[in-house]
């Protein structure tokens, strides 16, 4: 009798830990939506160059770590500079990304002790900020409350889900061998001077079992 209760508690705890701290967009019928227009409108709405101040929460193996991120992104040039500091202002790491490389300019030893931290963090940043619009050739699947674009990317398949009344990108998932490798979910879009920014972003890495939660605090030009 006790064992099922313990299992239920553990399950509840696990589900709680995977909670989403952002509002999901409301369901909206997509029966009359033109998928190509969804794609084009979204492309026109997202900024090409931006500087964001975020807070970051990294969850891994039942542990959490939080900090502040400052990121300068140029999606056209595919470049990005990122610095993360702790809440007392101490720099944790600094990365520079361009078309061909990811450079770790600074990182505390704790970040670099195991594995290639710079590459891992850099790839995550690219997943969050780059390649958010499916190609015109993507396969389209219109659902009741969403439109899904699927296309080949690298060795796998990328799936873009547009949903909600604003018809913005709410989820991008990358699959390999039939299973998800990573997923980025976008919430609570804000409009600043005609361009949109997700107020909340969650990256889930299924391969390594971690989650990164990003909260937008400030947008600069």
């Amino acid at each position: 009798m006790k064992r099922p209760a313990v299992v239920l508690c553990l399950l509840a705890l696990m589900i709680g830990c995977e909670g989403i701290p952002f509002k999901k967009s409301l369901d909206e019928s997509y029966s009359s939506v033109d998928p190509s227009m969804v794609r084009e409108r979204f492309q026109a709405s997202i900024p090409e160059r931006f500087l964001l101040l975020n807070t970051l929460v990294f969850e891994y193996n039942w542990k959490t770590f939080s900090g502040i991120g400052f990121v300068d992104v140029d999606t056209a040039e595919r470049t990005c500079n990122l610095v993360s500091i702790n809440q007392m202002g101490v720099k944790l790491f600094e990365l520079s990304i361009d078309k061909d490389s990811i450079n770790t300019l600074f990182a505390l030893p704790e970040f670099t002790a195991k594995g290639n931290f710079g590459k891992m963090a850099g790839e995550d940043i690219k997943r969050v900020y780059f390649d958010l619009v499916p190609s015109k050739e993507a396969e389209i699947n219109r659902k009741k409350f969403s439109v899904i674009f699927r296309q080949q990317e690298g060795e796998g398949i990328a799936e873009y889900v547009f949903s909600g009344p604003d018809q913005y990108l709410t989820e991008k998932t990358y699959y390999e061998k039939g299973g998800p490798v990573w997923r980025v979910s976008f919430y609570e879009y804000l409009n600043r001077d005609g361009k949109i920014y997700p107020g909340g972003t969650i990256l889930k890495n299924y391969l390594y079992g971690y989650r990164l939660i990003i909260r937008l605090k400030e947008v600069s030009d």
Binding site: Y60, T64, M88, L108, F111, A113, Y210
Partner: peptide, 19 residues
Amino acid sequence: MVKNKMEMKKTIVLLIVLS
């Protein structure tokens, strides 16, 4: 990525002190 949070915090506080 952040394998040992305790160690991280130690380093952070130490760095705060240093800096």
